[in-house]
Design a protein around this nucleic acid. Structure first.
Length: 487
RNA sequence: GGCGCUAUCGUCUAGGGGUUAGGACGUGAGAUUCUCAAUCUUAAAACACGGGUUCGAUUCCCGUUAGCGCUACCA
């Protein structure tokens, strides 16, 4: 076949029956990466033909999630609910060509037939009893007010085949397929019809979606054939599972991507993590000396992404690894780029730092080596951004429960007040001399001072903290240790 | 039940007819001593099972088992 290089057109087509969830986000990411890698077009289409379960809030939530992850789209969002004529036209064509027919069986009838089939132990498949109703008769019955769905006339014999870019050649016996519904009795299309009609209308070249659609694909292939269209490339993605290896769901906790934002995850970390769930850059990640690479910039991901690297087996979502990615990203950020994200966290908890921008950036740089998430800056590390901060009870108990130590810290504070050249070296020198004079281990004083100064048992090196905080704050916070009550 | 997909450390994965089966997360141990949720060193940890094919299978084929998916007037 003589193939003309064709610009790729790929879509992400979520159903707004829930927020953007992890699985959907991964599908979107792979589609987006593929479109960007191939220099093609990325299209967003909202599949809202299930009016009962779709809502505007969910659409907004999905768009928010897409933006958070930095996945921009070139066309859309298109809404299937606004494209009903296209589906009606498509169905009319299929009826005219004999590929589809009206079915007057009611839901109740179908259900009872399914039930008895189940009882008899046979396969509960639509028996095609309305297949032979002539079009004229069908038209007449509908004119009299009878409700009908439109079904696709699946060939009784033969096989339907297609090539999946991930799973390879696929073959399904037509006899396994039933005459599925294209148009519901209220005139709303079902998924199979709308997805094919739209993918055709929007000239999609690649259909990237979850493997849960693999078994649905032959039905759609049949539709393509019936419409005289050539097939797009199908690429099915293995699913993402929860820790118990069942399909990821609400039971497993956070399932909406925005929940991860709320946990203090930075979008780049989430994206990096997601990209390597079910896809691997293979040799591109190998380094001559040292471990394989795990951290990739967006540009690298786009450059390296290919359908070939997609795994065939399902993957378990690993929270620990996500947390590790987050840590790596949070620590690698330039403080000035991290600041806006931190500020968002502060707004969320209604916190206002009382230091100026330069100091805040310095504090962020000081804290980054120990931070794991954006949340750290909005809770544990607040003592660096202002004077309003909480004392961690466990830390106080561990290092400040001795009243004598608290008194010594206050006294140390008074000595610091008199220190002329307040530097890392001088503060350390003074503290160690003071400890020696008091006959106490320097470590005990250092640990106590850390808690007095930061409210936490975990902090950067104490004297770096002192230098950052400045003489005045160090003095007053140490002196305040004396009046601390420990239960 | 039928159909489909899948199977490498606990997890994510690399690899592929002959390898000490590689890396990452997590876990254990040790070091450091100014804390650790920091850092460094280090250890344990995998080819599901059974048959073929082959001089040789973890790799290819078949089967078994297990897991997942589909089997709607949901998508």
């Amino acid at each position: 076949m003589n193939t003309v290089p064709q610009a790729t057109r790929v879509r992400f087509a979520p159903s707004p029956t829930g927020f953007l969830h992890v699985g959907g986000a991964r599908t979107a990411l792979f589609s987006w990466l593929f479109a960007r890698h191939t220099g093609g077009t990325f299209i967003l289409r909202i599949e809202d033909t299930d009016f009962e379960r779709s809502s505007d809030d969910m659409v907004a939530g999905i768009l928010e999630g897409m933006r958070w992850l930095g996945m921009d789209w070139d066309e859309g969002p298109f809404y299937q609910s606004q494209r009903l004529e296209i589906y009606a036209r498509t169905v009319a064509r299929l009826i005219d060509s004999g590929h589809a027919y009206h079915c007057f069986c009611t839901r109740e009838e179908l259900e009872s037939r399914r039930a008895s089939a189940a009882e008899a132990g046979t396969v509960p498949r639509y028996d095609g009893r309305c297949r032979s109703i002539p079009q004229a008769e069908a038209a007449q019955r509908m004119a009299q007010g009878e409700r009908a769905v439109v079904r696709f006339r699946v060939p009784r014999e033969g096989v339907t085949t297609f090539q999946d870019a991930v799973f390879g050649p696929m073959e399904f016996a037509n006899a396994e397929l039933e005459d599925f519904v294209l148009l519901r009795s209220d005139g709303i299309p079902t998924y199979h019809l709308s997805v094919v009609a739209d993918d055709l209308d929007m000239r999609m070249t690649h259909i990237i979606r979850g493997a849960d659609h693999l078994s649905n694909t032959p039905k759609q292939v049949l539709l393509y054939h019936a419409l005289g269209a050539s097939l797009p490339v199908f690429a099915h993605l293995p699913l993402i599972l929860g820790p118990d290896k069942t399909r990821l769901s609400k039971r497993h906790g956070a399932t909406s991507v925005m929940a991860y934002k709320d946990m203090g995850i930075v979008p780049e970390a989430f994206r990096n993590f997601l990209a390597l769930l079910g896809w691997s850059p293979g040799a591109d990640a190998k380094q001559p000396n040292g471990p394989d690479r795990e951290i990739f910039s967006t540009e690298e991901l786009i450059r390296m992404f290919s359908l070939d690297g997609i795994a065939h087996s399902n993957a378990v979502f690993n929270n620990d690894k996500l947390a590790w990615y987050n840590t790596e990203y949070v620590r690698a950020y330039d403080p000035s780029l991290l600041l806006p994200l931190v500020e968002e966290e502060w707004r969320a908890v209604d916190y206002q730092p009382s230091r100026d921008r330069e100091e805040i950036l310095a504090a962020i740089a000081l804290l980054q080596p120990r931070a794991r998430s954006l949340k750290d800056f909005a809770s544990a590390f607040l003592a660096y951004f202002g004077d309003r901060f909480a004392m961690d009870a466990a830390a106080v108990k561990k290092f400040l429960s001795d009243a004598e130590v608290r008194q010594m810290l206050a006294e140390l504070g008074r000595q610091y007040a008199k220190l002329e050249n307040f530097t890392e070296a001088s503060t350390e020198e003074l503290l160690r001399a003071f400890a020696a004079e008091k006959g106490i281990k320097a470590g005990a004083l250092i640990n106590g001072a850390r808690v007095a100064l930061t409210g936490q048992a975990v902090a950067p090196g104490l004297f770096a903290v002192m230098l950052y905080l400045g003489q005045q704050r160090v003095v007053s916070r140490l002196e305040a240790a004396a009046s601390l009550t420990v239960e």
